[in-house]
Structures are given as C-alpha cells and as structure tokens.
Write a protein that binds this DNA or RNA. Structure first.
Length: 308
DNA sequence: AAGGGATCCAACCGCTTCGGG
DNA sequence: CCCCGAAGCGGTTGGATCCCT
C-alpha cells in the first residue's frame, strides 16, 4: 500500500543542507532557471530529491526572501488574513512579499498563536476564548452524534453552516442561485455537506460581482454553540468577533510589491476567485462575517477587492 | 557549570491539485 | 473522461539553540 516514492531515496541525502549543496543549487537555478524539479538534482549534481531542492530554494535560498523578524505590521496583516482564509499559508504568504508560507506557518505556530491567546482570542476561530470554549463544548456533544465530523479541518468551529461546492468557473458561480454555495471536498475525513438557509446575495453588476450577506452574519452562527436556542449568556458570548476591532483597510488586490516569477506563484494566487479563496467552509464563513462589514466585490478579471 | 525542559525553524512526509497525453 | 507524473500545500518532526533552575 502507499504511493511510490517521489524519487529514488536510496542515494539521496536527507537532513540539513550543506553550504556546498546550497551553492550548487543556487548556481544551477541561476544558469538554468527553475525548471523541472524532479530532474534538477541530477542536472545540478545534487544527491537530493527534487522536492527537497524545491523546498530549499523556495524557503531559504530564493534571492527575494526577506529575512529577520516580522514587523508589527506584518504581524497584524497575518492575523487579519488568517481570520479570513484560515491556515492557507501560501495565500497569506502571497500578501507578504519576501516571506514564505513555511516561515509564516512557523511564525504563526510559535508567536502569533500565543499572542492571540494572551489577548483572549482563539487563534483558530478568531473569536473570544470564552465563546470558543462554549462552542467547543457544544461541538463536542454534537460531535458524539455526528462522528463523521470529528476530523473536519476546522474542528473548533461547530456546525459550519455553509460550504462551497467545486465551482470551477466564474460562470458556474454566477449561475448559482444566491446562497446555494456549498463545497464538497474529496477528502473522506472532511466530507461535509451542509444545506443552508440563504445567507449570501450575489449581485452581478457592471463593476463585477458583489457578495452581500443577508440579515445575519455567518460568523455569528459559527461563534454560537450551534444550538438553535441560546440562553442569554450564550447570546452575550456570541458577540465575539463583532466586538473585536478588525481594521479592514487592507485591500486584497494587486500585491504591494513586485515579486519574481519564482515567488511560489504568489501573484497568480492573489488573483483567485473569491470562491477559490475559501477552501474551507469556515473560511467562507469568516469571510462572510467580514463581508457583513465590508463590501466584497470581484473585478471582471477575477481578482477581488475588499474595502470598507 | 550542567542538564533538562522549552522553543524555534528547516526539512520532511503524504495528500491534493493540476495539466498533459 | 481517465490516468499519471509533477508541483504545490499544510501538518508534523527532529535537531539546534535558548533559557531556567
């Protein structure tokens, strides 16, 4: 069982890279560019698998990498973006020129998580920890009767109320009636299909597509216990996120800095369609919440802007 | 000074997605 | 439409370093 190895492992080095290996890789990419990673090691005279070479280049050797500590602005941007897209590190990295997904992921796990917890914010849901604890308790009891949701990608958010289908084209999305956006992943563990009362209105205008959230933000639902009847305390706790001041001056449009083509295709990712951005239900839900405070629109070329 | 736990981060692993045939 | 290989991605691991006692 299992997959065939990505490369012949018998004669490949593992572990830390030596300076000589780095130099060989850099020299090869300088002269030949980034080509087929699988054949690169042989061509460059490296006893590494292509995957390892790619990682080393992208995460460490790329000349446009910004090294050193994260600035406060970068911190805040990461937090904001994470609240919108979840653990989509490559997407987040695409907004931070010179930073890699791996670096951001590590930084998140070692610094920002702790920082948010200190602020009383759950790093996964971006809700207040009180609300999340309540929700988690309710989720645990709900999960007992719904074992298939145990391994859902974002377990800390109970009963996500909306998912995205495998919409592949702009037309397909537009063709959908408002609010019937659902997603079915092909991962067995994360298979969820949640039918939902209308929450979105998608309006196609001359300026593109506008996504509006109706009456109730999705995040309100997610931050709740998932029960249909809430007691007053739960209602109070449910104010999570709404009370947090989220400065939405960020505009998800073109990158602020020019990136090289080698930059992990970040630029192309920045032009994702909105539904492509939300690869998890909770991400869509979170975005829905943000949308409730902002106008969310796409341009005709498929990029999107989030403005106040 | 030593050693043991905590923290950091580069690298790896395995799964998913994409694109060509 | 299906298959397969390559690339991309996110979670996890493990070694190095730091910090505390």
């Amino acid at each position: 069982m299992g997959r065939s190895p990505c490369c012949e492992k018998a004669h490949t080095n593992k572990g830390a890279w030596t300076k000589e290996e780095d130099q060989r890789l850099v020299d090869h990419i300088r002269t030949h560019g980034e080509g087929c990673w699988r054949s690169l090691p042989k061509a460059a005279g490296l006893l590494r698998c292509g995957k390892s070479c790619r990682l080393r280049w992208i995460n460490y050797l790329r000349p446009d990498l910004k090294r050193g500590n994260f600035s406060k602005e970068e911190d805040e941007l990461i937090i904001k973006l994470h609240s919108m897209v979840g653990n989509k590190w490559s997407l987040i990295a695409g907004r931070l020129p010179g930073r890699t997904d791996n670096e951001i992921k590590n930084y998140w796990n070692t610094h920002i998580k702790r920082k948010l917890i200190c602020r009383g914010i759950d790093p996964q849901t971006h809700c207040s920890l009180n609300a999340t604890a309540t929700a988690a308790a309710a989720s645990a009891s709900a999960t007992n009767s719904q074992p298939e949701l145990k391994n859902s990608p974002v377990p800390s958010v109970p009963n996500p109320e909306i998912t995205l289908t495998n919409l592949r084209t702009n037309e397909e999305l537009m063709a959908r009636p408002a609010a019937s956006i659902t997603r079915q992943t092909n991962t067995a563990n994360s298979h969820m299909e949640i039918r939902n009362a209308p929450l979105y209105e998608i309006a196609i205008t001359s300026r593109g597509m506008e996504l509006k959230v109706r009456t109730e933000s999705i995040d309100e639902r997610n931050c709740s216990s998932g029960l249909t009847i809430e007691d007053p305390q739960q209602q109070q706790e449910r104010t999570c996120e709404q009370n947090q001041e989220i400065n939405l001056e960020l505009s998800i449009g073109l990158p602020s800095a020019t990136r090289t083509s080698s930059a992990n295709s970040a630029e192309s990712k920045l032009r994702l369609l909105p539904y492509q951005l939300f690869s998890t239900p909770v991400a869509a839900a979170r975005m829905g919440s943000l949308c409730s405070k902002s106008s969310f629109q796409t341009s005709k070329n498929g990029s999107f802007d989030l403005t106040n």
